[in-house]
């Protein structure tokens, strides 16, 4: 089961288009609707979302999107909202199971755009299995950013099952010099915006997070044109069973650099 999310800042808005079919063209059950979840008084507040829909898609307009709200498909049977909880839940859970065994993830199209006509999109999802505490994200930054562009930033999206807004550290680390070049905080259950100074965009500089998982999405803006894409998790570049051991070894190196400074 996948959650969906958007992003918003001073210059950029977003919209989501969620299909009513899977990658094989099979229609989802027509009882499914789009719901949103947002933290309120340390609980998840679940609401049915205002959407436009046609035979094939649900469309979530920019006015419904902020950096905290998430969206998902469910129906009354699977949602388990009743008079007792009045739309409030202590935890998120698997709200639908219709694509859990699909080879290709059930994805929405996340489109970001500015007022000048620039736009970029990707087929986006946040899998329910990624909504857990702890872990580290490691990603190179230079492949998807542009040191000559007007602006570079990373949308770091985290979703936890628990309705918590806690801060965890991120670092920009130079692997060659083994130095932390910049650092800051990212908040759980949020689409965080991490500004990237152009001087950081070098082949040996990596984004590393401490005790927080998520999806880093790299955005470049130049002359009103926008490019947005996510990186792969490092274990996906190794197809043999040693992948997690190799990645663990590299992540330990980054942890040592953090601890040494």
């Amino acid at each position: 089961m996948n959650f969906f999310f958007g992003f918003k800042n001073e210059f950029i808005r977003s919209e989501l288009t969620i299909p009513k079919f899977n990658f094989q063209g099979e229609k989802i059950d027509n009882t499914y609707k789009v719901f949103s979840a947002e933290i309120l008084n340390k609980s998840w507040k679940i609401d049915q979302t205002q959407i436009n829909e046609d035979d094939n898609f649900f469309k979530i307009d920019q006015s419904e999107i902020n950096n905290k709200k998430i969206f998902f498909l469910s129906n009354n049977k699977e949602l388990k909202i009743d008079k007792n909880n009045q739309g409030f839940l202590n935890t998120l859970f698997n709200f639908n199971s219709f694509t859990d065994n699909d080879l290709v993830q059930f994805r929405s199209n996340l489109k970001i755009f500015n007022s000048k006509g620039g736009f970029s999109s990707y087929q986006s999802d946040y899998n329910h299995n990624l909504c857990r505490q702890g872990g580290n994200i490691l990603s190179p930054i230079s492949p998807l950013l542009n040191k000559n562009a007007d602006e570079n930033f990373i949308i770091f999206r985290n979703i936890l099952l628990e309705p918590d807004n806690n801060n965890f550290k991120y670092y920009f680390i130079c692997l060659k010099s083994e130095k932390i070049l910049d650092q800051g905080f990212i908040t759980t259950n949020k689409s965080n915006e991490i500004k990237v100074d152009n001087s950081l965009i070098k082949d040996s500089v990596f984004l590393f997070t401490e005790n927080i998982l998520g999806i880093p999405i790299f955005v470049t803006v130049d002359n009103d044109h926008i490019s947005m894409e996510h990186t792969h998790p490092p274990h996906q570049y190794i197809l043999t069973k040693d992948n997690f051991d190799l990645v663990k070894k590299i992540k330990n190196k980054f942890k040592e650099i953090v601890l040494s400074q």
Binding site: N146, I226, S227, E229, Q236, I238, T240
Partner: peptide, 24 residues
Amino acid sequence: IDSILRNSCYVGYSYKNSLYSYVH
């Protein structure tokens, strides 16, 4: 290396000399 590597990196396309739009 006793492993299989998969290179699935990033291609950028520039149209009319504008910003490269990247895809993995």
